[in-house]
């Protein structure tokens, strides 16, 4: 399947990735290739098979108890922040 340019631009915009015209064409071709490869799955007959979301049909979510076991690691949390201010992350002003 081939991906059109408008859809590719939309995907880039949603991912907040800026691409020029040359780059967008390259990405369009790459994504199209990935989609084509995924489409091989369409050859499998899944008639009557309920949709599954994981590789296991027998395993379910394992819960944990409601206990505070984490957090209190402000320095670690902020360690990769490119522009931190006191205890805060900062970002260019966003007011919606």
């Amino acid at each position: 399947m081939s991906l059109d340019l408008a859809t590719t631009r939309r995907i880039a915009k949603l991912a907040r990735i800026g691409l020029d015209d040359q780059e967008i064409e390259a990405v369009r071709a790459q994504l199209g290739g990935i989609l084509g490869w995924i489409e091989i799955l369409d050859e499998v007959d899944v008639e009557g098979v309920p949709p599954m979301v994981g590789t296991s049909v027998t395993t379910t979510l394992k819960p944990r108890e409601d206990v505070v076991t984490d957090g209190n690691c402000q320095d670690k949390v902020l360690s990769n922040a490119p522009d931190r201010e006191g205890p805060f992350f900062t970002v260019p002003k966003v007011v919606e």
């Binding site: 409601d66 206990v67 505070v68 984490d70 690691c73 402000q74 949390v77 006191g86 805060f88």
Partner: peptide, 27 residues
């Protein structure tokens, strides 16, 4: 109402020091 978050063990108490009740999952 719970002591810890939905998918991490960080505290849910209101009004804590900023970014202190955050696990690496939440971040």
């Amino acid at each position: 109402i719970s002591k810890s978050k939905l998918f991490s063990g960080a505290s849910t108490v209101f009004g804590g020091e900023p970014n202190s009740q955050v696990s690496l999952i939440d971040a």
